[in-house]
Amino acid sequence: MMQTQRVAIVGLGRVGSVFLDALLKQQGKALDIVAVAESSPTPGLAMAQSRGIPVLALPEILQRCAEIDIVFDLTGVATVRRELRDGLAATNNRHTVIAPESVAHLLWSLLAPGVDLPQVHAQSGY
């Protein structure tokens, strides 16, 4: 039996909303979406709320990282990525992986072949 990955998505704008929709179709198979973070009213935020997925602030996500395997950072904001890395380091969390947009694009290509994920952020790497 495949191990279930517990994931959080930070950023539910144009990229995150589409990504969340695709992951919800996989919910309960190999992954469980345990939390999201978004401060603006977006379609992804409404989708998460309608599914009962906890909507947390970034510090709350960091507090729960012991129970999160992968955090998808889809904000495109370098300070958010730094806050995630620093927060994990401060708690000596060596379990949770921060997946940047490049990993989301790879996963997307497997989930929705032939369909492009929106390209709205500059490539910021890790």
Rank of each mutant, 00 (worst) to 15 (best):
L107N: 07
D86L: 13
W108E: 01
P54Y: 07
E83R: 13
D21N: 10
K29W: 08
I9P: 00
L12E: 04
G16H: 03
T4E: 10
D116L: 12
E38K: 00
E101V: 14
S124Y: 04
I33A: 01
E101M: 13
L23V: 09
S124C: 10
A48K: 02
V15E: 00
L31Y: 01
S17N: 00
A99L: 06
L23P: 06
P54D: 04
V103L: 12
R14I: 06
D116Y: 05
A104W: 00
L58E: 08
E67M: 08
D69S: 07
G76N: 03
A90H: 11
N92T: 12
K25F: 07
I53H: 03
V77C: 10
E101S: 12
G28C: 06
D86N: 13
V7A: 03
L23I: 09
P59S: 14
Y126I: 11
A37M: 03
P113M: 13
I70C: 05
L84E: 02
R81N: 06
C65G: 07
V80A: 02
D86V: 08
V7D: 02
I70S: 04
Q26K: 15
A30S: 15
G28T: 09
L31D: 01
Y126G: 10
L24C: 09
Q27N: 07
S17P: 03
L23C: 14
R64H: 12
G125S: 10
P118G: 05
G76R: 06
L107Y: 04
D86E: 15
G76M: 05
E101Q: 14
D32A: 11
G11F: 02
S109T: 14
G16Q: 07
L20P: 04
G11R: 03
M47Y: 07
A99N: 05
Q49E: 12
N92A: 15
V71Y: 04
S39M: 11
A122T: 13
V77G: 04
V15F: 01
A57F: 11
H121F: 14
L111E: 03
H95W: 12
H105Q: 15
T96V: 09
I53A: 00
S124G: 13
R85D: 15
G13Y: 02
A22Q: 09
L111K: 11
R82Q: 15
R6M: 05
V18G: 01
V80M: 01
E83H: 08
V7F: 03
I9N: 01
A78H: 11
V103Y: 08
V77N: 14
G87M: 11
G76L: 05
A90L: 10
S102R: 10
D116N: 12
L45F: 01
I68F: 06
L12T: 05
L106C: 11
A89R: 15
A78Q: 12
S124M: 11
A90N: 09
G28R: 09
L106R: 08
M2S: 14
Q26D: 03
P43T: 06
P100T: 06
A46Q: 13
I53E: 00
W108K: 05
Y126D: 13
A35H: 02
P41E: 10
A37C: 15
R51Y: 06
F72R: 00
